[in-house]
Design a protein around this nucleic acid. Sequence first.
DNA 1: ATTGAAAGAGTCTCAGT
DNA 2: ACTGAGACTCTTTCAAT
Lengths: 158, 158
Amino acid sequence: MTGKLNLDKLDFQIIQAMVDNANISYADLGKKLFVSGGTIHVRIKKMQELGVVRGTKFNIDFKILGYDVIAFIGIYLEKSSLYDSVAAQLKKIPQIVRLNYTTGNYSMFAEVVCKDISQLKFVLHDELQKIKGIERTDTIISLEESFSRNVLVAENEL
Amino acid sequence: MTGKLNLDKLDFQIIQAMVDNANISYADLGKKLFVSGGTIHVRIKKMQELGVVRGTKFNIDFKILGYDVIAFIGIYLEKSSLYDSVAAQLKKIPQIVRLNYTTGNYSMFAEVVCKDISQLKFVLHDELQKIKGIERTDTIISLEESFSRNVLVAENEL
DNA sequence: ATTGAAAGAGTCTCAGT
DNA sequence: ACTGAGACTCTTTCAAT
């Protein structure tokens, strides 16, 4: 699936430099990596065409905005064939920001972001209980996020 | 903590427009929101000063790069006072991209991103077993990510 | 493939409202 | 607080290597 991407050291260096902060200019990044700004541009264009670079995103501090309650919900389904139907219903709940189909302790695993505990309670007691096909759920509340980072791409290639 | 942020409808509209794709220009975004490009600029500058907007990030498709094995690890500690020491050791494992201190089924909850199952096996069997203070772990492997999105900011304010 | 420079587009500032 | 225009910086293209 990954096909022949043929990325070299410079490509990975560009990804590493921009993945957490894309504010540096091509000219400055070129200086840092000992190539011209034009080369940085060509490489990024190539990676966009390959689909490796999808674009840029705003980096928002949701905590400051008041969204500081994070919880994980492990979901047991009555039958695993109910996955698609339950997933569609979970997607309608805006506080659920991520959903994975999993193997191990749970059939599905969701991440929830809320403004406060009462909103979380609402999601768990009101929204989730409405959904048919869920046998039971385990709630894991995050008291603190120790760290969150991107996978370090090409540890070996550099 | 969140203090008086005093963000209005326009600020939230800007966040919503830029959080998933920050490539639109201030002039074009201004047209869409019926204000001038200069106003968009002032608002974003204000939100950067407030710390709400941290900057921009490259949006990378890690799956295309070959990082397509995602797993979650629930960790039981021997004593919860070991949290800081265990967290410091987990941070040294590059495949662990996120760690939360949790209440509920587990003491800690980690997310792992690997290139393949054998790399995951290495993290679980070799790296994790070395760490003192971990009683046992549950591994939840993601077979498929149904969706992943940002929290919808200010559902009520808009 | 990379470079350096020119053209085009975007950001940033500011005087006026 | 918003606007529009000018100054400035960055991106993008391209001929030359």
